[in-house]
Design a protein around this nucleic acid. Sequence first.
DNA 1: GTTTTTTCATGATAAATGTCATATATTTTA
DNA 2: TAAAATATATGACATTTATCATGAAAAAAC
Lengths: 246, 246
Amino acid sequence: MTFIMKKHYLCSISLNSQNMGRCEQCIIREFSSLKALTREELLTISDTKTHFLVKKGEVIFSEGDNLNGVYCIKEGFCKLTKLNANGKDSIVKLSKRGDLLGQRSIINEETSNLTATALEDMSICFIPKKEMMEYFTENNKFSLLVTKDICNHLKDSDKGIADHTHKTVKQRLASVLLKLEELGGTNPENKALNIQLSREDLANMVGTATESCIRLLSDMKKESLIQLLGKNIILVNKSELKNLSE
Amino acid sequence: MTFIMKKHYLCSISLNSQNMGRCEQCIIREFSSLKALTREELLTISDTKTHFLVKKGEVIFSEGDNLNGVYCIKEGFCKLTKLNANGKDSIVKLSKRGDLLGQRSIINEETSNLTATALEDMSICFIPKKEMMEYFTENNKFSLLVTKDICNHLKDSDKGIADHTHKTVKQRLASVLLKLEELGGTNPENKALNIQLSREDLANMVGTATESCIRLLSDMKKESLIQLLGKNIILVNKSELKNLSE
DNA sequence: GTTTTTTCATGATAAATGTCATATATTTTA
DNA sequence: TAAAATATATGACATTTATCATGAAAAAAC
């Protein structure tokens, strides 16, 4: 287990001066509730937002941090984790391009309940709390979309609890592999999953020991359900994986 | 496993005529986001709401149901469950007096993702979708409270996923027992938990087989962590249960 | 009040999963 | 590029957990 310092404060300063990207021209906002903002609101956000790059493995924010705004993912995947008392991580959720992070903490005026860590090099915009909450209270269309987004997360999480309650490890692994494809898609060339998790991360998402996860991947390979090419995982028999996961 | 018909439609009609309870005088609303409603809004809700009783074991609404409003619990506990593909239930959440049910489905305009079942005789008010959404879009104070409530549920559910990911069954059982006390309190006379779950329900909340749950309860009894008096569970050594659960 | 059904409890056993050890492959660092 | 560190893989084994069987206790139905 390694500890990596947060470097994004430095990055955000050095990069923002170079990055004159205007929110009103940014396509990414179409993927989130930000699409409900008015032209004026977007102009203000353009001036108050900061942009920064995060390297693979770097922490964006940690459990317990006081977030002063929300993070809009322009590019890259990240994991949202919770640390167990016995020192083990649980991956609660994965986020991708277009997703907003930190909404719950801002609305509830609480510290973050999750840690966000980049799974690959990322490009992120930071939108200050002040503007977010201003538009949240004044722009009804925006607040409705934000709330709907949170509602969807809630539905996913409740599904997650149910999945972890009575399914076997193998069922959950199958389910996670399909979820990874759904979320991140596949490489058009070799059909491998675009989201590359370490075996440890995969185990922390499935809820099992790393060795058990590796073993079950090997089993699935022998059963021709998947193919393993180094870090690459290819879902060979998706319908059977689907059957297995249910 | 038994199937129980929903009878509350009948109940609601027969009872509503007798029940002239006015929302503006109801103390229960102080426990939920309904406290943000104006006097005028409350008067309208009084006229449109219906009140009904639900008997222990009866289903209030089921996974997949189209909810036409939200349910405000005036009295009693209920469980919110999700049915697994292999026919096993997971208890995702418990709700009590003052809680609102069905908010997520109404806001997202989706069918319910959970089934609500009474754990004891309950008294419930039903508030139609139309009024809820009207106030949600027009009364900012109300919508903020609703959203905060959903945010709290999300935080709880994410905690739930993490708990299920790497904790042992015994750790989770200890955690559930403490949660039951926190949520429902104890009988002042014998200090037993007010929320009485069957062993099967307890197992479905912990995420284990009923027999394993019973066995672990026996173990905890032998270790003087708890006391078992019929259906009554008394938490004897709470600090040790707390240690165990973490 | 008796019968029937359901819930609770426990033993025996099987199956699933976790842990520790070790080897190899891969990546990172110097 | 070589050395060090980390990630992946697999075997051996311990532990946990699930399943099946059975009986007792409690609750529900008659």
